[in-house]
Simulated assay, not measured.
Amino acid sequence: MMVQKRSLSSRLKSYVAGAIALIIVIWAFSGIEFKGMKDSAGQILGAIFAGLFNPDWSYVYSGHGEDLVSALFETLAIAFLGTIISSFIAVPFAFWAAKTSKKFSVRSTTGKFLLTLIRVFPELVLAIMFIKAVGPGAFAGVLAMGVHSIGMMGKLFSEAIENIDRGPEEAIISAGGNRLDALSWATLPAVLPEFINFTLYRFEIAVRSASILGIVGAGGVGAPLIFALSNRSWSRVGIILIGIILMVTVIDWLPGAIRKHLLK
């Protein structure tokens, strides 16, 4: 009889959770005003696909720095520099935010709050802010990418620190070592592979984000893309999109291969 009551209670909880989820979905859709498709949507979509199948190959490389290859390299440079710089800066933030005991920690709580505060601002918002501070260009994009990545990687790094085995640290301290010895010989060797893994994963995301920073003037391939869209130069749009697709595909494969090699 007891088992039947538990089963009934479990089913009731599932029904209630499902009903709440359905109500939330209905509420979310009720807040969206669907105006339908524009009459010119089919024509614009057809023009975009025509540009994809008839790309402007002359824009690929011109040797003057105003071509697709240069824009893609600038995008990669923004993503790489932003990720590398933030990966080093995120390490002390990660140790600040990591909770190493079950007790309440003011240090960990303030660290997690700061990392959350940094992640609140999207890359585009940060890019606009830094453009006002340092002017338009790739430098503003690197700053925007780097600051946002600090919040994301700091969170991932802190979770890696929290999940490591504390046995080696305790063994070093019990053998007469200090906290610095435990950090150097136990903590860092344990978390370093995870740090590298998260950094490579973040670089993949940064490449996608850097592709659109140029829309607001922060360098990269986004600037020529938005100009081509504004001028309805669909063949130019087509070759830029092809370049972005190839770049993202290669970047998805390369860090993945490196991660597999590191985890062997």
Rank of each mutant, 00 (worst) to 15 (best):
M1V: 12
V3Q: 06
Q4C: 02
Q4G: 03
S7T: 13
S9H: 10
S10C: 10
L12R: 11
I20M: 10
I23M: 12
I23G: 12
S30M: 10
S30G: 11
S30Q: 12
G31E: 13
I32K: 15
E33Q: 14
F34S: 05
A47R: 12
F49C: 09
G51S: 10
F53T: 14
P55T: 09
D56W: 07
S62C: 05
I78S: 03
F80M: 13
G82F: 04
I84G: 01
I84L: 13
I85D: 01
I89F: 08
K102D: 14
V106R: 06
S108Y: 04
T109I: 11
T110Y: 13
G111Y: 01
E123K: 04
F130A: 05
K132V: 11
F139A: 06
F139W: 07
L143Y: 09
G146P: 03
K155Y: 04
K155F: 04
S158M: 10
I161N: 07
I164H: 06
S174I: 02
S174L: 05
L183G: 03
L183T: 12
W185M: 12
E194P: 03
F198K: 00
T199N: 05
L200W: 06
Y201L: 15
I205M: 10
V207H: 03
S211N: 02
L213D: 02
G214L: 08
A218S: 11
G220W: 01
G220Q: 02
V221Q: 00
A223T: 09
L229R: 08
S233A: 14
I245Q: 00
I251A: 04
L254V: 15
P255N: 07
A257Y: 13
I258H: 07
R259M: 07
K260L: 15
